[in-house]
Amino acid sequence: MDFVTAADSDPPHFVGISVAAVLVALVVVLIVVAFGRHRKRIFTRPAIGIGCLVGLYLIVRGVAEFFIIDYHDPASYRDDWGGPSLLGVFAVHTGPGLVALIVAGYAIRRRLTNRAVSR
Rank of each mutant, 00 (worst) to 15 (best):
residue 100 A to L: 01
residue 106 Y to T: 01
residue 105 G to R: 05
residue 27 V to K: 03
residue 103 V to Y: 04
residue 2 D to W: 05
residue 78 R to W: 02
residue 82 G to M: 00
residue 88 G to N: 09
residue 86 L to E: 07
residue 117 V to A: 14
residue 43 F to Q: 08
residue 70 D to A: 14
residue 71 Y to L: 08
residue 53 L to C: 14
residue 90 F to E: 05
residue 80 D to F: 06
residue 13 H to I: 09
residue 10 D to R: 15
residue 115 R to I: 10
residue 59 I to S: 09
residue 25 A to E: 04
residue 73 D to Q: 07
residue 90 F to K: 05
residue 56 L to A: 15
residue 64 A to W: 07
residue 10 D to W: 08
residue 9 S to P: 03
residue 61 R to S: 15
residue 83 G to P: 02
residue 41 R to W: 05
residue 41 R to T: 10
residue 15 V to L: 14
residue 54 V to G: 00
residue 74 P to R: 01
residue 63 V to A: 13
residue 27 V to H: 05
residue 92 V to S: 06
residue 109 R to D: 10
residue 113 T to N: 13
residue 9 S to V: 15
residue 94 T to K: 00
residue 103 V to E: 06
residue 111 R to K: 06
residue 12 P to T: 06
residue 10 D to F: 09
residue 44 T to I: 12
residue 37 R to N: 14
residue 30 L to A: 14
residue 118 S to R: 15
residue 22 V to L: 13
residue 14 F to P: 00
residue 105 G to F: 05
residue 71 Y to R: 11
residue 23 L to T: 11
residue 8 D to F: 08
residue 31 I to G: 07
residue 59 I to A: 12
residue 115 R to M: 10
residue 102 I to E: 00
residue 84 P to C: 11
residue 4 V to E: 09
residue 29 V to P: 01
residue 88 G to T: 05
residue 1 M to F: 09
residue 16 G to Q: 00
residue 71 Y to F: 15
residue 30 L to P: 01
residue 40 K to S: 15
residue 20 A to Q: 07
residue 50 I to T: 09
residue 89 V to D: 02
residue 17 I to E: 11
residue 14 F to G: 04
residue 46 P to D: 03
residue 13 H to P: 06
residue 105 G to N: 06
residue 42 I to E: 11
residue 20 A to L: 08
residue 49 G to H: 02
residue 46 P to G: 03
residue 102 I to V: 13
residue 98 L to D: 02
residue 116 A to N: 12
residue 67 F to D: 06
residue 118 S to T: 11
residue 57 Y to D: 12
residue 2 D to P: 14
residue 40 K to C: 13
residue 64 A to S: 12
residue 19 V to A: 12
residue 37 R to K: 14
residue 33 V to Y: 07
residue 95 G to E: 01
residue 116 A to D: 14
residue 83 G to L: 01
residue 18 S to Y: 06
residue 94 T to A: 15
residue 84 P to F: 09
residue 19 V to F: 10
residue 35 F to K: 03
residue 75 A to S: 10
residue 118 S to D: 15
residue 28 V to G: 04
residue 20 A to S: 12
residue 116 A to H: 11
residue 33 V to A: 15
residue 50 I to E: 00
residue 80 D to E: 12
residue 57 Y to V: 14
residue 28 V to E: 07
residue 57 Y to L: 15
residue 77 Y to T: 00
residue 8 D to E: 12
residue 38 H to T: 13
residue 67 F to H: 04
residue 108 I to C: 11
residue 31 I to K: 03
residue 113 T to L: 12
residue 91 A to M: 07
residue 78 R to Y: 02
residue 23 L to R: 10
residue 39 R to Q: 15
residue 59 I to G: 11
residue 117 V to Y: 05
residue 48 I to Q: 09
residue 44 T to Q: 09
residue 31 I to S: 08
residue 4 V to D: 08
residue 102 I to F: 05
residue 68 I to M: 08
residue 118 S to A: 14
residue 11 P to Q: 04
residue 10 D to I: 12
residue 26 L to R: 04
residue 81 W to M: 07
residue 49 G to Y: 00
residue 52 C to S: 15
residue 32 V to R: 13
residue 49 G to V: 04
residue 94 T to F: 01
residue 14 F to I: 11
residue 85 S to E: 08
residue 68 I to F: 10
residue 51 G to T: 10
residue 45 R to D: 08
